[in-house]
């Protein structure tokens, strides 16, 4: 259908061309073609780029194991290692003890994220002494908030149903009122952490313990059927999830392994009410005795050695303490430490 253009008759030429193309589909314009080619090229390059980016020879990638941070602080020479306060008012006891340690401000700096870890393992009332005293938790939270901590998380991986434990123990209400965020663990939020212990190689640790800048351990002293006693070291059972009942196969070494992994800033041992028998769950108020004592310190082993006395146990009877000493976590001879009794 090509015709020679006749420059003398432009109109006739145009008319003829229009007639030739009548009913014929129009061709792509140069602009459309360029755009089409560009689109296809971009799609092809994007495919190859994404493919290269996502390319993978080994789908089984071990999740990178996190290493727990050391949350301890450097203490000046001659600082008090352990403060024991006795008296009818639990809150006053912890205030006194903290003050003797140099005040919480020596441990917590403004802007830090602090996790407070009481024992909230059981669906029990405060009077039943299976969980840490909520008044103590509230006081510590309040002090942290006053000191300008950015976040104060109160959490524990409970044994009984988490919501019930936190409600019944009074800790949820007390901590919230004091200004803490109560973090209830669910089925997610656990991170794979390298323990590198003698029996525990890895553990699934609940996120606040991984993320926090400072960790305050707040155990309660009580009897435990399997390990005879549960205090500071055994309290770390509550930072991990997963299938942790397995730990009972080698409970003493497991506790020592966990304790070697966790390096808390401060430990506050609650011996206000002590469950003397049928632990760790308890239930009967006949098994509970008031000692109205709070001990604060930086050596967990020493605190546990001290706490064993409430349960009429010698520290040498507690297998996990021997393992912890072997692991270099602390000393059993708490009397050798710089200590104040109030």
């Amino acid at each position: 259908m090509t015709r020679k253009n006749n420059p003398d008759l432009p109109l006739a030429d145009a008319l003829q061309r229009a007639a030739d193309n009548a009913g014929k589909p129009r061709a792509y314009t140069r602009r459309e073609i360029t755009s089409k080619i560009a689109q296809t090229s971009v799609a092809a390059l994007a495919t190859l780029g994404l493919g290269t980016w996502l390319y993978d020879r080994e789908t089984a990638r071990a999740e990178p194991l996190i290493k727990m941070r050391d949350h301890r602080i450097a203490r000046p020479a001659g600082a008090v290692d352990m403060a024991i306060a006795r008296g009818p008012d639990a809150v006053e006891n912890v205030r006194k003890a903290l003050k003797a340690m140099g005040g919480l401000e020596t441990f917590i700096k403004p802007g830090e994220r602090v996790v407070v870890k009481p024992n909230v393992g059981w669906n029990r009332l405060p009077e039943q002494a299976a969980n840490t005293n909520p008044e103590l938790v509230a006081e510590v939270v309040r002090q942290c908030v006053t000191l300008g901590a950015k976040e104060v998380w109160v959490t524990d991986v409970s044994v009984n149903k988490v919501e019930q434990c936190f409600a019944r123990s009074g800790i949820e209400a007390a901590a919230k009122a004091a200004g803490a965020k109560v973090v209830l663990p669910g089925s997610t939020g656990f991170r794979a952490v390298a323990v590198g212990g003698r029996v525990l190689q890895t553990a699934e640790v609940f996120w606040p313990f991984v993320d926090a800048d400072k960790i305050i351990n707040m155990p309660i002293v009580k009897h435990h059927g399997l390990t005879n006693a549960t205090m500071s070291l055994k309290n770390w059972y509550g930072v991990i999830g997963g299938h942790r009942v397995r730990l009972h196969q080698e409970i003493d070494q497991s506790i020592a392994d966990l304790a070697a992994m966790m390096k808390p800033t401060l430990t506050i041992l609650d011996a206000t009410r002590v469950l003397l028998a049928n632990g760790p769950t308890g239930g009967s108020l006949d098994d509970v005795k008031r000692f109205d004592t709070v001990a604060v310190g930086v050596d967990e082993v020493a605190l546990d050695a001290f706490g064993a006395g409430f349960l009429n146990r010698s520290p040498s009877e507690l297998g996990f303490l021997a393992r912890a000493v072997a692991a270099g976590i602390g000393t059993l001879d708490y009397k050798s430490l710089k200590r104040v009794e109030l």
């Binding site: 296809t40 495919t47 190859l48 994404l50 493919g51 996502l54 993978d56 789908t59």
Partner: peptide
Amino acid sequence: TALAGHTLFVTLAWSLPLIVLTLV
């Protein structure tokens, strides 16, 4: 599998030339 598993397994790299050829 890339959407679900977030990587492109080595064997599946064969699909890249097919995608490009189909695009053209």
